[in-house]
Amino acid sequence: MRVKIRFLGGFEKDFEEVEVEKGMRYHDLLKRLGINPETVVVVKDGKPVPVDDFVEEGEITVMRVISGG
């Protein structure tokens, strides 16, 4: 399935579309993108989602929450 990702807060890119196999969790997806799950909040339909939840088709926003560097 296709997942559209919007990046917010100091990423090198703003947007990416990826192909994700069923059964993948958000923290696996983040790691595949080279992002430490501890440093972001994943938002879907305006609400935060647990990072160990399964990825669903559609659009998500990955917010980088860390500061100071």
Binding site: G9, E38, V41, G46, K47, P48, M63, V65, G68, G69
Partner: peptide, 30 residues
């Protein structure tokens, strides 16, 4: 946790400004 501050803010529709100060430069801290 810093990420919990963001989760709390999002749940209350508080404005979550994510911009970093243009002068911010702390390589050791980073």
């Amino acid at each position: 946790y810093e990420k919990d501050v963001v989760v709390y803010g999002l749940l209350h529709n508080l404005p979550m400004d994510m911009n970093e100060c243009p002068y911010s430069h702390f390589p050791v801290r980073a």
